[in-house]
Computed example of a mutant assay.
Amino acid sequence: MGTFLQIVGGLALAFVLLIVAGLFYLRWRIKRYANSDAAKWAQIGQAGVAARISLKPLDEPFHHPEIIEGLIAELQDLGYREVGRYSVPEMPTLQFWGGAHPEDGSGATVVDHSMIAPFFELCLVSDTDARHTLTVTTNPTHNPAHTRTGTRVIADGAFTPMAARSELLRTAADEPYLRFDAENFESIFVDLYARQMDFILAKGGPTEADMRREAARMADLPELDDDQMQMALRMSRASHQQALEDAIIDRFLKRYDLPAHEWERLRDRVIVIHDRMNGEEICQHALGHAGAEVDEIEVERILLVSDSRVAAFHALQELLPMAERFRLIGRTDEPVGAALYERV
């Protein structure tokens, strides 16, 4: 279950490319994703990148019931007991079965998605604050670059449930692990997703090379020229930045335990400043509302000498009259260095 985020990331990236292709090829028909699949892609595109997820009991059949039920039966034969069947509202069309093994406490998931071949994962989670994981998976979208520091993922599409369990037990370190059960499965699962997504978001959004690799994988997609690819990158960056802001706010609220009524008062007035912003974004947020002109040379100097984007924003704010400065609410260093301000 340590590789779930790669599903939403990969599909969001693919959908960005489809949108850009549609803008520049108005007569082009997406044969591979036409008709019934078009609605599914639309759902995925609207969802964007999910910084956090929630689980709901599954209230509809699996997309590939024969394959999914077959994998579930094999895992149950190995001793895994069902803890639930779920959908994920933030990741449209994603469904999965969850199980736990009473002997070693390992967790199991069998994953079904309308646009990806079914797969399963087995997972052990260290009983430490870091919650490092050992995951054995057949996930076809696994990207080693997305493996969180301190965790290990063994991915092989040829694994059977029996072979995967043997590999999990053979590879497991001699250390205490959390024990999945019906009571804690959901909370552990959601927490692991948040930790791994924080790792991905902190690294930055997809590069042009990432986008071109995804475009090459989609056989029906016409080749995008440089301008079109830049548009795709901007769209992808916007989705990534929004997810990063969501993750920062989530970590901030957990760290400071802000009362609900106070957050409701602030939420529409909050501006998030973080170290993955570029200089132009920092200047726009810090000075875009300024009533008076500021010294451009001093602005450039601040951007050059500041040791972080958050520090640069603070220094730029000091160029303004007190009445035009934003009020600092607090800081956090997860997933990246960031500060939350209240707009004036």
Rank of each mutant, 00 (worst) to 15 (best):
G10K: 06
D220K: 06
E324S: 12
T133P: 03
S126V: 08
V20D: 03
E293K: 12
E264H: 14
R152N: 08
I188K: 01
A100L: 06
G22N: 01
G48Y: 00
H64G: 03
L75K: 01
M197F: 00
D333C: 06
R165T: 02
M218C: 03
R165H: 13
D250H: 14
I248T: 06
G205S: 00
F326G: 03
L304T: 12
R81A: 09
I200S: 12
Y33M: 07
D225R: 12
M1K: 02
A311L: 12
V8A: 08
R152E: 15
F120I: 05
R32E: 13
V299D: 00
G150P: 13
V20A: 07
I30N: 13
Q242G: 01
L71R: 00
P222W: 06
T160F: 05
R301G: 09
P140N: 11
A34D: 14
M235D: 07
S106P: 11
G205D: 02
A155F: 07
N184H: 11
V111W: 10
R265I: 05
F185E: 02
M211V: 05
P144H: 02
D191I: 10
I249S: 09
M229A: 11
D220A: 13
P144E: 09
F62P: 04
D191K: 10
Q46A: 15
A243R: 00
A312P: 13
D210M: 03
E121M: 03
S306E: 01
L18N: 04
S187C: 06
R195N: 12
H63K: 08
T171G: 09
E334Q: 15
R269D: 13
V190A: 11
M277H: 07
A194D: 05
Q228T: 02
I200C: 13
A243G: 08
P92C: 07
E69T: 07
D210Q: 02
E245R: 15
A38Y: 08
A42M: 06
V110A: 03
P321Q: 03
R81C: 13
M322R: 14
A47E: 02
V305N: 02
Q196W: 04
C283S: 11
I200D: 11
T149Y: 04
V8E: 04
R343Y: 06
T151R: 03
Q284C: 07
M162T: 15
A108E: 02
V305Q: 10
V336I: 13
